[in-house]
């Protein structure tokens, strides 16, 4: 079933359109930076963006920091929100279930497909950003061994590559949290639009609460609390505290919402 879902994902024109649209924003940012040479000052604007004018190889990370807070979660909400509600609305859910595809197996396959979409998007964004960064932006350190960490010290290339992959993994875990919420709502809502919008309102609401001093007591439990903690991977030494808290928090969200999705879907009457 997982293979079927992946094949459906890759064959859908919408998948590729979404990926390209998401990819367009960091590319535009890169081109603008290259043309104007006006980077944000260190500590301002999206993470890493101040550094890319001197070192273009850091642009993939900057691009990730640009798409992670909004674009990627929206796309994941739409993809995972469609999982069950979309099949039900199209009438195909009943034919999938009588093949038979087990209900738990279907949920797992849908979640895997949503993650495959994230991986695909992140890879395309990172690859494009690397090309843009190396060709258009600063290439001062390409010949020199090592890049600059956020803390100002030097990182060797293997270190940088390793930390980049850790950062990608962390970002995917955050998106898995979004996907699990959307999947749950998809088993509840009768329209995929409802499930997607519900998920978006959860993380938009969470981001808003994070800016509020009055929400101090609950902020550590909000789903978007540690989304950007991957920046800490590029400090020297790595600042693990928020990352660990983020992994535990996202893991909990995934477990709770996936369990809720299964509990709801396993005994649901499929009458569409």
């Amino acid at each position: 079933m997982i293979r079927v879902e992946l094949s459906k994902l890759l064959r859908s024109r919408r998948t590729w359109t979404t990926v390209l649209l998401i990819d367009a924003l960091p590319t535009l940012v890169g081109v603008l930076l290259a043309v104007t040479d006006l980077g944000p000052r260190p500590g301002e604007g999206p993470a890493f963006l101040s550094a890319v004018l001197t070192d273009g190889t850091l642009f993939p990370l900057a691009a990730l920091a640009i798409v992670l807070p909004l674009f990627l979660p929206i796309a994941v909400s739409v993809t995972a929100g469609e999982a069950i509600a979309g099949e039900a609305a199209a009438g195909t859910l009943r034919y999938v279930l009588v093949r038979p595809v087990g209900r738990l197996r279907l949920l797992v396959a849908k979640l895997v497909a949503a993650m495959a979409f994230v991986v695909l998007t992140v890879l395309v964004v990172a690859a494009t950003a690397y090309v843009v960064g190396v060709t258009l932006l600063g290439d001062q350190s390409v010949q020199v061994v090592g890049s600059t960490s956020v803390s100002g010290t030097s990182l060797s290339t293997p270190e940088l590559v390793g930390r980049t992959f850790l950062a990608l993994g962390y970002a995917m875990l955050c998106m898995l949290g979004v996907a699990a919420i959307a999947l749950f709502l998809s088993t509840v809502a009768s329209s995929s639009l409802g499930a997607a919008l519900g998920t978006m309102s959860i993380f938009v609401g969470s981001s808003l609460l994070l800016t509020l001093d009055a929400s101090e007591a609950i902020r550590d439990y909000l789903p978007t609390r540690y989304w950007l903690a991957f920046v800490d991977l590029f400090r020297d030494p790595i600042l693990w505290r928020d990352l660990q808290a983020g992994v535990i928090l996202q893991g909990t969200y995934v477990a709770v919402f996936f369990a809720a999705a299964w509990a709801n879907f396993a005994t649901k009457d499929v009458t569409e």
Binding site: A90, G91, R94, V98, P100
Partner: peptide, 17 residues
């Protein structure tokens, strides 16, 4: 179910394929 074929309340298929 592998031995049962069914059509329930009209056909349905993935429309873009």
């Amino acid at each position: 179910l592998p031995h049962v074929g069914s059509m329930i309340e009209g056909p349905a298929a993935y429309a873009h394929l």
